[in-house]
Each structure stands twice: as C-alpha cells, then as structure tokens.
Design a protein around this nucleic acid. Structure first.
Lengths: 243, 243
DNA sequence: AGCGATCATTAACATGGGTTAAGTCGCAGG
DNA sequence: CCTGCGACTTAACCCATGTTAATGATCGCT
C-alpha cells in the first residue's frame, strides 16, 4: 500500500507483494527489541502494524532514537549487503512484522522493475528524512525541534491514512521524545507546555491533536518537501479542519 | 578505486568505470555550489578530486552541513528517482567532478552485477554515517562532537590513502565545522583549544594531525563500526606512529 | 609592498536547556 | 481497596554553550 505512493503498481505486482508479506509474520511486544546491534538478520523485516524505532546507544547509556518506523517501513534494508547491524530496532507499540526471505526479494525485483523503482524511492526518502533530522537536532531550538517532529509524524501518518481529521496516534513517552530530539525529559515537558499554551496542539493519552497545522508548520520552520510527497501523496485524508 | 573496498572488481569492471568517469568532467571553484536545492540534475556527479559538502539552509539563514563528500563520493544519488534535490551541494575546495549520464549507469549495472553490489554498499554506508551524525549532534558534548568529526574525517581519508602517517588534509573553516556539529564558531574555537591542550591533535594551515588516534577515539566515544570498513579497508596506510 | 577580506582567537556577558529532586496522577496486580 | 511503578509535572539552581565585540593573523590581489 505504501509503495503505491511512489509508483502506480499493477494488480499483478500488488499480488506478488501481498504474497510475500503473508508468508511469515512475527509479533514483538511493546518495548522489546526487534533487531539488536551486531545481529546479522537473515530475513528482511517489514513493519505491518504498530510503531518501531531505530536507535543507537553510547557506552555510557546515552541513547539517540534515529528514526521511527511506521507500517510499510523496512527495518533492515542493509541486511543483504552489509555484514551486521550497526544499530538496534525496538518496538514502541506491539508490532507485527513480515519476515521476507532475501532471495525472494531478488527474484521479485528482477521480475517487476517498477517495484524496484518504488522501493528506491522509499529508501531515498528515508535517507532524506535522516538528513532533515540532523538539521533538526543541529540547528533548531527546542520549540522548533519538538514541533517539527510532531509535524513529521502527523504528516507521515496522514500519508498512510492513519489520521482522523487533525488527530493521530502518538504512542511515545516523553523520554522517547527526549531521546529523539536531543533534549532532557524535563525540557521536553516544558516545551510541550509551550506548544499547548500557544494553542497549536493537544497531546495526551497517546493521542496528538494538531489544531492549526499551517500555523504550526510556520512556527517551527517545517517544510515537508524532504518527505517527497509528490503528486500521489495528497488525496488520502483531508487536511485538518480549521477550528 | 573507492568501490574496490566493497567488492573485488575485475579488470573489465574497472575499465568500464574508468571509461565512464572520463567522458565529461567539470571543475567547480572553492565555495561555489555544485548543485542547488530545487535543481533536477540530469547527470550524476561524482567527486574525483577535492572536498564538497551537502547542506541545508533554513529560511532565516541557519545552515547545517549534512555530509562531506570526498573523492569517489556521489553527489546526487537520488537524481534518477526523486524529482528534485531537497538540499544543496557545495564545493569546499576546488572540486573536479565526473558527470555521468543516467542511462549509461543503468546499462553498466545490468552488465556488471557486482558493481551494483559495490554501489549499494557505498550508499548504505553513507546512510549509516548520516545516522551517526544524528547521534553525534543529538547526544554528544561539544568536545566529543568535534573529536568525533575529526576521527571520522581522518579515517575516511585513510581509507582513500590520503593520509600521511597521523596527518591529513582538513580544508574546513571553523565556521564550517560549527555548521556541521551544531555549535557556534566561538565555541568550536574554544573546543579546538581543549583538544589541542589535551595533546590529542594539532590543527592549522588546512592540515590536521592526530597525535594519538586510539586515545582520541576513546575520549570522544568514536566507534568506527558505522563506517563498515570491513576486511579490505584496513591495509592502506599504517596507523599513525606513536610519537 | 600594501590593502581589504576572510579567518582565527579571546574576553565579558547572557541564556537555553540540563540536573536534581519532589510531588502527582493513573493504572495493573495483589 | 491498597500498593507500587512508570509516566508526567513543576520548581530551583547551575553550567555548557551562545552572543557580541574587539583584536590579530593570513592570504590573495593589485
């Protein structure tokens, strides 16, 4: 479903993908690891349901969350090529994974070149997001960083049809948010208050509401071009109503 | 030459690559842009000589350098797939580029699958570096960030055979370093003094000397596994002599 | 050789965000 | 119903890093 944003796929191509993802699935409980640094996974894991994150830990315990994986995202792109994982992937919520054999992927792409293109697009977009995160942590203020993260997670979910008006899931603890944008938990909390009292968002009970997306985007210098939404990515859910 | 670290290539494969890079070259002067955000380059640019950087600018002028490109690095991987660049690439030194037509690449990879593998490895490594940069800026102190950057640039150059003992080029201004690791110029300067007076490095006249690489690595929590040096990448230049 | 521009350095002062610590709330398990 | 634990909140205090500004050093250019 997600790849459809990147290239029109034929019914046949979609069937081939579906067949792949149904072969073998795995369930990982919330907060457990999906893959650990140093593993050399022999299958490719794709998130079918739930949220996961990539993260790296320094020797002294500091942790940085490097990416969030939503349904349709691939956990271990590098598996077939690089020797071993240089970071871990953990489950945020309970996650359902498809485990895909490396060989079957090779065959699939040889048969359907348009799939290759779609997957390339996907991979390049995730690199682009990674770059934007570097900018986020390197240049923005706490307020901007946090707002930017919320914008991104909202828009990505909207692409997947997972938003309800201006509302979406946000199953992260403040500690996880802190490790994502390089702030302390305390300051994340302070900054959330700021965003709330600016009337831009509501957040609580694992649910985020963005009251005025346009205004928030402007306030935190969020420019979605790095998500490469392109043409196809716009018609999924109406933008949030102006309250 | 660089791809050789990732896969043993046959003479024939190397010749094919050489032929490509000699077709058309371009020279860009120090501090000029190679590609601008919004461009949709019709050729793929590969750095043959000199240093370049990827960077993004916020509306208010803040700038983040996102990556450094050394000889052998590709400027615009995404060109064939994504519509347009979401960031710019600028020349640090004077840079020589090979301009490669997109079509000829497709043909090349169809003919020599091992090249594809090598290029994948290269691309995945650059993503891995990007992730580590997020960690660097998000979690490390000024001292660690700067030391980590210097370690990386040294090791990457050593891979290319561009170091001379513990010495390598470092054609960056302190302002550029600042924009790379998310610090102010003033603080970069202070922190450089710290590194110097700790006896770890000397820096001046566009030349970096790392006096005790091991010690520096330990002091700044530099773990080179994210560079995926693997087997082949080690024998190029002796590690620096212990003074 | 002299000039202007860019780059490095330093000092004094200001502040955003970290740290510590304490308290609250909600909820799963006994 | 009580207990305990994890997540959230708030306040007080402090330090790493930013800002501003002034001075030197370097370097390409004429």
């Amino acid at each position: 479903m997600k790849l459809e944003h990147y290239a029109r796929l034929s019914a046949e191509e979609k069937d081939a993908l579906d067949a792949l993802t149904q072969v073998r699935t795995r369930r990982v409980r919330s907060r457990d690891d999906i893959i650990r640094e140093g593993d050399a996974p022999s299958v490719i894991n794709v998130v079918l349901e739930g949220w996961a994150c990539r993260y790296k830990t320094l020797e002294d315990g500091r942790r940085q969350i490097i990416a969030y994986l939503l349904p349709g995202d691939v956990c271990d792109f590098s598996a077939p090529v690089l020797r071993e994982m240089d970071h871990s992937v953990g489950a945020i919520t309970t996650v359902t994974l498809a485990e895909i054999a490396v060989e079957s992927v090779g065959h699939l792409f040889a048969t359907y070149p348009r799939l290759t293109q779609a997957l390339c697009w996907d991979a390049l977009t995730s690199v682009s997001i990674q770059r934007e995160w570097t900018v986020n942590v390197g240049q923005r203020t706490a307020f901007e960083r946090l707002g930017h993260l919320l914008c991104e997670l909202f828009v990505r979910q909207r692409l997947l049809g997972l938003t309800r008006g201006g509302v979406c899931d946000l199953p992260l603890t403040q500690a996880e948010i802190a490790d994502t944008i390089g702030l302390s938990v305390v300051h994340v909390n302070r900054t959330l208050q700021d965003l709330r009292s600016a009337g831009l968002i509501s957040l609580g009970g694992r649910e985020l509401t963005i009251h005025r997306l346009e205004a928030l985007q402007r306030a935190v210098l969020f420019n979605p071009s790095y998500l490469h939404l392109g043409h196809e990515g716009r018609h999924l859910d109406a933008p949030p109503p102006n309250p």
